[in-house]
Design a protein around this nucleic acid. Structure first.
Lengths: 241, 241
DNA sequence: AGTCATTTAGGTAAACATGACCATAAGTGC
DNA sequence: GCACTTATGGTCATGTTTACCTAAATGACT
């Protein structure tokens, strides 16, 4: 047998799609953007937003385009990274479609509702999918779980938690992101110490925000650092339950 | 506009391939398995092993099959994980081919040379690609660099370094894996302390290996743990350079 | 004005982890 | 036995983390 043995079998011809796991944090809980499917299959069911990759279009570009179409948000203001490729035969009843899933993180955005694809989109608490209240079309629950695990891990090692925050933000805002994504309460004092000690994580802008109640909090914007050394460990939690 | 706006553009029809970054450690240096291409394009040049995904074949299955075809190694003895999908138009002159790259880690295997695809395969020091001595076809150098970064990161947070070792192995064997992948010398004493302290990383089998020179070393096999808590940091190195 | 609830901000001590280094153990070759 | 090599174990100063505690700054309430 020669090296070309697998060339004898015709390569499968298929279609590529991108699916997006778009996370945000609203009132202390992690939400994901879901759409209600307007076409068969799974018509009327909840699914991750996504669409087909076009001719001559790069994967990242397709993901950016879908993100823009689904959220109406300017391109570069959201964090977007490739998550995983899903290509099991039979994952889509329409045929052989492999999906490149992307993870997007953003602040709690005003969702444009009219005149765009986003009209069918809803922010949904992630917990309501994890506990089975809502089921997703295709293999989208698996994709969502993988995206959640990636987001949780990224918070430990990188500064992307700031992508969830609208600038300027307070240390408490940032802490709520961690608590929502990890599902754990954190000690405010220790959290602040770790964040402040990491050079370039957040930069004070010298102003303060007056809350409804309590002492005013210092305001910050994102720093230039991308990686956390040392990492923020998930273990340092307070057990309030 | 309705949700189906993007359905009007025909989805791109394309071909999917899997490419493999197969790492091993030989005499203290990290090596990657490369093949010499037998067909156009890039005929005669070095490339990562890989091939097309077949009709009805899952991505992971295609990667396993290629791994077996290229190395002649039993399926489940090597660590295999999906790395990233590469789909830029123009990355392959033959047409729109998106490649799902996989990362494989294994011990220094006896490579079957005759009668298989592996006849064109060679273990190549990763350093000789990074410093430009060897150039790779397609975008395979980018894929290799991504795979290397993934492997380096995985060694910090997981126990997959044991996948590089033939059982039973010594702590020094394991340390050499870390030194080869990270490209850093580590303190033997401190390394041992960290490995032993992590519950379920390695399990002593009570025997010892007689080396050519030096005190006999205790032998171990893989434990059940998959994650390292705390992580093994890359910083704890001895500067011998 | 004074008190209270609330939240931010900063500090402390014990436990723990780390890095650099030293000492001893257990083999081989001479 | 002696020199050499590698494995293994320990020490110690230093840094980090955790679980707290205290103080500061505000609005609400009386």
């Amino acid at each position: 047998m020669s090296k070309t043995v697998h060339q004898r079998r015709p390569p499968a011809s298929l279609t590529a799609a991108v699916d997006l796991v778009i996370f945000t944090v609203r009132d202390g809980r992690l939400h994901v953007l879901l759409i209600e499917r307007g076409n068969m299959p799974y018509r009327g069911e909840a699914a991750l937003p996504g669409g087909f990759v076009r001719d001559g279009e790069a994967l990242d570009a397709a993901a950016r385009r879908e993100l823009r179409e689904e959220t109406g948000v300017a391109d570069d203001s959201l964090h977007l990274e490739q998550l995983h490729a899903y290509g099991d035969p039979g994952r889509d009843p329409r045929g052989r479609i492999i999906s490149i899933a992307y993870l997007a993180l953003g602040p709690d955005l005003p969702m444009p509702q009219a005149g765009t694809d986003a009209s069918a989109a809803h922010w949904t608490p992630v917990s309501s999918i994890l506990d089975g209240q809502i089921t997703l079309a295709f293999d989208h629950e698996k994709i969502l779980r993988d995206g959640l695990e990636r987001a949780r891990s990224q918070l430990e090692h990188t500064t992307i938690a700031t992508a969830f925050c609208m600038e300027p933000f307070t240390i408490a805002d940032l802490r709520q992101i961690y608590e929502a994504v990890w599902g754990l309460p954190l000690d405010p004092s220790n959290f602040r110490r770790k964040v402040m000690k990491t050079e370039g994580f957040v930069i004070p802008i010298g102003e303060r925000r007056l809350p409804d109640v309590g002492r005013p909090a210092g305001l910050f914007r994102r720093g230039l650092a991308e990686t956390l050394t040392p990492p923020l460990t998930r273990s340092g939690s307070v057990d309030l339950m």
